[in-house]
Design a protein around this nucleic acid. Sequence first.
DNA 1: TATGAATGAGCGTTCATTCAT
DNA 2: AATGAATGAACGCTCATTCAT
Lengths: 197, 197, 197, 197
Amino acid sequence: MRGEGNKGRLILDAARRVFAATGYYQARVEDIAREAGVGKGTVYEYFTSKEELYLEMLLEVVNSYVAGVRAGLEHAGGDIREKLFFTGRHLCSFLTEHGQLARMVLQDPGPINFKFTDHLRTIRRKMVEMVAALLRDTIPGSIPQEEAEVAARFFLAGLAGVVYPENMQTLAPQENLRTAVDVFVQGVSETFGRERG
Amino acid sequence: MRGEGNKGRLILDAARRVFAATGYYQARVEDIAREAGVGKGTVYEYFTSKEELYLEMLLEVVNSYVAGVRAGLEHAGGDIREKLFFTGRHLCSFLTEHGQLARMVLQDPGPINFKFTDHLRTIRRKMVEMVAALLRDTIPGSIPQEEAEVAARFFLAGLAGVVYPENMQTLAPQENLRTAVDVFVQGVSETFGRERG
Amino acid sequence: MRGEGNKGRLILDAARRVFAATGYYQARVEDIAREAGVGKGTVYEYFTSKEELYLEMLLEVVNSYVAGVRAGLEHAGGDIREKLFFTGRHLCSFLTEHGQLARMVLQDPGPINFKFTDHLRTIRRKMVEMVAALLRDTIPGSIPQEEAEVAARFFLAGLAGVVYPENMQTLAPQENLRTAVDVFVQGVSETFGRERG
Amino acid sequence: MRGEGNKGRLILDAARRVFAATGYYQARVEDIAREAGVGKGTVYEYFTSKEELYLEMLLEVVNSYVAGVRAGLEHAGGDIREKLFFTGRHLCSFLTEHGQLARMVLQDPGPINFKFTDHLRTIRRKMVEMVAALLRDTIPGSIPQEEAEVAARFFLAGLAGVVYPENMQTLAPQENLRTAVDVFVQGVSETFGRERG
DNA sequence: TATGAATGAGCGTTCATTCAT
DNA sequence: AATGAATGAACGCTCATTCAT
């Protein structure tokens, strides 16, 4: 993005909505421009290409995701259950808000985003480490680093399955989250909190 | 697909490889034809459109996924750990083999596949029910149906996070799987196997 | 056409129906083959190309048209009115039967048929001459050759306007024909049958 | 057509020339664009499809035809011969200018133009009525409406046969026209101007 | 001889990008 | 800076023609 003017902001927001609604290839630059209320050419004043616009937009989304997870994990005064629950809460609203885009962030972004893959990998790894650290710091007993990371991956990916919008019809998402967090924390505690057989 | 002749098979296989490598929109019909070793027009002798080819290919992939999960869950003579472990093994090789496509199956297929969404939803639900039934039948204590399903979702989605190829550099995938299954089974047992606080 | 076997006949007939129904470009060789009850490749055993098939078919149609007009004009025992009336009757059924094709014959065949244009021109000229001869032989008074030909052209083209299927809703075509022939014969008689002012 | 800007005009004119020269199916959109001196994509800025472009172009041609016929029939101060003569003059230059297209207008447009058929039918009917009215208003004696229309059809179609460019080598077109109009007017006068036998 | 599976040239259309205003 | 008219590369699909059987 060239400047941080008002127009650039409008375009990024419009891009997020349009890309989220239809995916990268279905979205036309003209649609985004119209959604932003600017001319088609203006998009190219702020971004060098459709791809760059997409990547910049995705970066913002990813950053907001990371910030949310971090906020959840650092949720002041909570025990581990509370922290993980808040993390899930964030994930839930993130999925609700960003739909299609969220999938790209949580999983691989697909081949569209080769240039983004490394960054996403880094992001995911950082979050895994955060959760792993939480587990090792909080759960009684000593959890090997690698196994803590496996558990963290399991948790973060599992959360997405639980809070997926399509799954939230029978139970309130809160209830789903409580259950998942309980199972996970219990499981980690039991598995690593005592001598393992 | 028109017939089950040799060419149709070649084209489907080529389509799987090309779509997996580049995604739906990037894949050109001509690429698929070349990969299959046939002419461009031949593709249209067997499939009415690029979209139909894609959907038909995806259906095969989904079916192989379901068959593998089912085989894992019914793994003869194993206890629940063993069954879930084998399920994870299948998932692991599935992800390794089908790359990009696997994501579409495991998560939402995105807007390309609107026509497929319902089928995928059904598939995922069926698998959740299978895992939930296994939990209720195997874990001592009584687990409410809805919570069993939440746990099942958590497990299936979590597995994918653990066995993702990109995550399999430090630990052997087998080890990752063992850990995740242990955590999960312990967690469910502890959470539902006794009075819940 | 290579031989005069049964298949060749079937294909020509099918070609006439299909071309008449949809026009040259819309007709697919496969449609014609199916209509003829033969394989697609067989068409190419009898005709070297779609275009050749079309031209041979059109030649047949043109010949039958010419034969009909000639038969009408030579209608034994009739006076000029009767002869022209029978000519019109033939034209009428020709238009009804061959629809789209008839237009190509009566008017220019268009650029599709460059190779045919000369032949069609010859055909039309021949018919003009036949009618012109009839006029000069039958109408009292002396009609200059060139003006007889103009009148003949006027008559042949005018007929088509009168017997066009779309125009045959109010009056029986017979009545239309009678009127047109009357007007024409009266006109020629009056114009050329006496001293012209 | 989107606007009435310069480019749209250029494209329509180019389309008329190219379609007239080669017919609908042979004409490539790229040819039309080149003929108009614009890029291929520009055509689609002004017309939604090749078909729409064709139809819009044809509409213009038809309108100019109708206007010319009307002008001829209303030719101030002329008697009926003069009016019909001027109508023929217009038809003649129309055929000369628009070649292949003219045929589509004068006769059925063929299956390409299904959507246009109704409009063309209406146009032709309107012109038949105009000529029929002229006959009934001008020729002494009472001509039944239906027979006046038949005569009008005969005249309009016959004219085309007379003024066809290919026929204009021996006699000056003017002469042809005079002859045809004379024959026709004499014919109608004699046939309807007195008691009919 | 007869067939239809296989082919690829050809074309209509889309849309990211450019550039004159 | 802002615009949108103009552009043409790219691609899905059709169908006349070929050829192995």
